[in-house]
C-alpha cells in the first residue's frame, strides 16, 4: 500500500500541487497574483470562451447521438458480435483517435479528398476546405468522432440497467411505450444522461492531440495555448503563465466533476452496477 501512495503522490498529487501553487508564485519564488493577470488577457479569454462553447456543443450533440446508439446496441444480444464490434470500435475512437482522427479528416476533406469529391458530385462545394481547420466547424465535427463513442461507452451500462420487468409492469398497468419512456425509463436514465454529458464536456475540454494535429495556425482553444506557453522558448515567465492557465482548467473541470459525482450517486440508486 505504501508504494502505491508514494507513487501517486510523486506523479499525481505533487504535479497537481505544483500547478496550483506555481500559479501563485512569481519568478523570484515569492507569492504573487501577477500570473493570474494573464487570465484576463483578451487572447486567453477568447480561447477559454471558444473552449467552453466547443466542449458544450460537442458534449450535448455527442450525448444525444451516443445515447441513441447506446439504446440501439442495448437491444441486441449482450454476447452478440454486433455489440462487441460497436463497443470495441467506440473504445478505439474514444481513447485512441487523437492524431489519426485528425489525419482521417484532412485526408477525406482535403482539396482532393474522397468526401470532397463526393460532395462536389452532388453539388455541394467544399469551398477552400479551410473550414476544416476552424474551431467552430471542422474541430467540432472531428470532436464528435470521439464524443459519440465515449458516450456509448459511458452510457451503455445505464441503458442496460433498465429491467424488462419495468416495461412489463408499465404495460400491465395500461401504459403505452410513450408512458414508459416519459414516466419510467426517462426519469431513471436522466441523472446518468446528464452525468455522462458532463463527462463528455470535460473530455472535450482537455483534449489536445486532435486539435494539435488538425489546427496548425493559431491556438483557438485553451489546451493548445497551454502547450504553446510550455514550449515557448522566446518569452520568459511563460511557465508561470502555463500554470495559471492550467489552474483555470483545473477549476472548471473540478466544478463539473463535483456536479458529476453528485449526479452519479443519484443515478446509482436505481441502477445496480
Amino acid at each position: 500500500m505504501l508504494p502505491f501512495f508514494a507513487y501517486t503522490t510523486v506523479f499525481l498529487l505533487i504535479p497537481t500541487l505544483v500547478v496550483v501553487v506555481g500559479a501563485f508564485l512569481g519568478a523570484d519564488g515569492r507569492p504573487t497574483l501577477s500570473n493570474l493577470s494573464a487570465l484576463g488577457e483578451p487572447s486567453f479569454l477568447k480561447a477559454m470562451r471558444q473552449s467552453l462553447v466547443l466542449s458544450a456543443v460537442t458534449a450535448v450533440a455527442g450525448a444525444v447521438l451516443g445515447s441513441l446508439l447506446a439504446y440501439a446496441v442495448s437491444t441486441a444480444s449482450p454476447t452478440g458480435v454486433l455489440k462487441r464490434f460497436v463497443t470495441s470500435l467506440c473504445g478505439v475512437l474514444a481513447q485512441f483517435g487523437g492524431v489519426a482522427l485528425a489525419f482521417a479528416f484532412t485526408a477525406s476533406f482535403g482539396a482532393t479528398g474522397l468526401l470532397t469529391s463526393w460532395l462536389a458530385r452532388v453539388g455541394v462545394e467544399n469551398g477552400s476546405g479551410l473550414w476544416l481547420y476552424e474551431w467552430d466547424k471542422g474541430l467540432m465535427l472531428v470532436y464528435l468522432y470521439f464524443q459519440v463513442p465515449l458516450m456509448l461507452i459511458v452510457f451503455l451500462p445505464a441503458v442496460e440497467g433498465l429491467k424488462p420487468q419495468w416495461r412489463e409492469a408499465t404495460e400491465t398497468l395500461g401504459g403505452t411505450t410513450w408512458t414508459y419512456w416519459r414516466r419510467v425509463a426517462g426519469p431513471i436514465l436522466l441523472p446518468s444522461f446528464i452525468g455522462a454529458t458532463l463527462l463528455l464536456f470535460t473530455n472535450a475540454l482537455s483534449a489536445y492531440a486532435t486539435a494539435r494535429a488538425l489546427v496548425s495556425q493559431g491556438s483557438p482553444i485553451v489546451p493548445l495555448q497551454i502547450g504553446d506557453a510550455l514550449s515557448s522558448e522566446v518569452l520568459l515567465g511563460q511557465q508561470a503563465v502555463a500554470k495559471a492557465m492550467a489552474l483555470a482548467m483545473i477549476v472548471v473541470v473540478a466544478l463539473v466533476m463535483t456536479l458529476y459525482a453528485v449526479l452519479d450517486r443519484r443515478a446509482s440508486r436505481w441502477l445496480v452496477r
Binding site: P15, T16, V19, G22, S206, Y208, A246, M249, I250, M257
Partner: peptide, 21 residues
Amino acid sequence: FVCLLPLTVPAIVLVVGLSPI
C-alpha cells in the same frame, strides 16, 4: 478516489505539473 483522480486532471495540466518532477 486517488485512482479516479486522473480523470479530472487533464493530461495537458499534468504535463505542466510533471515537468519539474
